[in-house]
């Protein structure tokens, strides 16, 4: 039986078993999606827990849901909410200065293994909004339209920010782009 149909059947038959199956199948997906936007594992785990608590509280209204997409979306929204709340509390991560950008770009590459870490650093170093949009497009595979709706901005802004992100990454990753 396809996974979603199986989960739907479980939901009708035994809520607890359904929850366990859902949790164990999708917790890593939810947690990792959050982590890409909020790169701190302890916080990502806390937020992922909250996603599943919400699902549990809403279990009576999940009759038509396609779980994987639903959970992915819930994870993204949870992460964005968290970023927003942090910002309102004045804890916004400051935009990276050109000097820092330079630092990311010129640190020597030692191992192939570190390449991935360096690329990730470069993405992490993008300005806040720019990074959010880039992550949603590149890793969460959301369309510009979906991103625009989620963040309540125009598609045009999404397109602009995407290009800003790519141009900045092109500079900080130039050593890998020869």
């Amino acid at each position: 039986m396809p996974e979603n149909a199986w989960l739907q059947k479980l939901l009708q038959e035994d809520e607890r078993q359904f929850m366990e199956a859902l949790f164990k199948t999708y917790f890593p997906l939810v947690c990792k999606a959050i982590y890409r936007l909020v790169p701190d594992m302890a916080t990502a785990e806390d937020l992922a827990q909250e996603v599943f608590i919400k699902i549990w509280n809403r279990r009576e209204q999940l009759g038509e849901v396609y779980f994987k997409a639903y959970l992915h979306r819930a994870a993204v929204n949870m992460a964005l909410d968290h970023i927003d709340k942090n910002k309102r509390r004045g804890g916004a991560p400051q935009e990276i200065s050109p000097a820092q950008e330079e630092l990311v770009a010129t640190a020597p590459v030692v191992h192939v293994k570190e390449t991935k870490a360096r690329i990730q650093q470069a993405v992490d170093a993008l300005p806040e909004k720019c990074r959010e949009i880039f992550v949603l497009s590149r890793y969460e595979e959301m369309s510009y339209k979906e991103i625009a709706q989620t963040l309540q901005i125009s598609v045009k802004t999404v397109e602009n920010q995407m290009m800003t992100a790519l141009k900045k990454l092109r500079v900080s990753l130039r050593e890998f782009l020869e």
Binding site: K32, R170, L177
Partner: peptide, 24 residues
């Protein structure tokens, strides 16, 4: 720019695995 887009796929490939059992 296209290469940058391609290269960016490499980021987050090593996201730490959460302990599913402990979280459950």
């Amino acid at each position: 720019l296209k290469d940058t887009w391609g290269l960016a796929a490499e980021a987050y490939k090593t996201v730490p695995e959460p302990d599913v059992e402990a979280n459950w």
